[in-house]
């Protein structure tokens, strides 16, 4: 029964190494641009304030606050998804390693 821990470690690292990149890509390509768009729209409310009633402007502002919270919560959901994917890939690597080392499907 060959037990090459080094091979397992490489498989586990390989399964988990995409996590940082994926989270950063989501942050760079999704969350930051969305928060930027919201910031621009908050400025636009002030710029066009004469188009709106005071209550109307307040409602538009409240809408942008909710959007900001939603983008942050959405980014968190996608981060948790990336962590979930990485953990399951590591568990899969462990399973393959154990079954490969034993020679039959133990787990």
């Amino acid at each position: 029964m060959a037990l090459e821990v080094g091979n397992l470690l490489q498989a586990m690292i390989g399964a988990g190494e995409g996590l940082g990149t994926e989270v950063w890509d989501k942050l760079k390509n999704f969350a930051i641009p969305e928060l930027h768009k919201i910031a621009v729209q908050i400025a636009a409310i002030a710029e066009h304030i004469t188009d709106y009633t005071p209550e109307g402007a307040k409602a538009l502002f409240d809408m942008q606050v909710k959007a900001s919270i939603g983008v942050i919560a959405g980014m968190t959901e996608m981060t948790l998804l990336a962590v979930q994917t990485a953990i399951n890939a590591i568990l899969s690597a462990v399973r393959s390693f154990v079954n490969g080392a034993i020679g039959f499907a133990l787990v």
């Binding site: 768009k37 621009v40 729209q41 188009d51 709106y52 009633t53 109307g56 538009l60 809408m63 939603g70």
Partner: peptide
Amino acid sequence: DFHRAQGDRGIPESAREIILTGGVGSL
């Protein structure tokens, strides 16, 4: 609430991006 508060003015052109690029659209 915005639409209601606007009364007869309704939704002006300047609110399009505020609603659809930010706000509801962003969510």
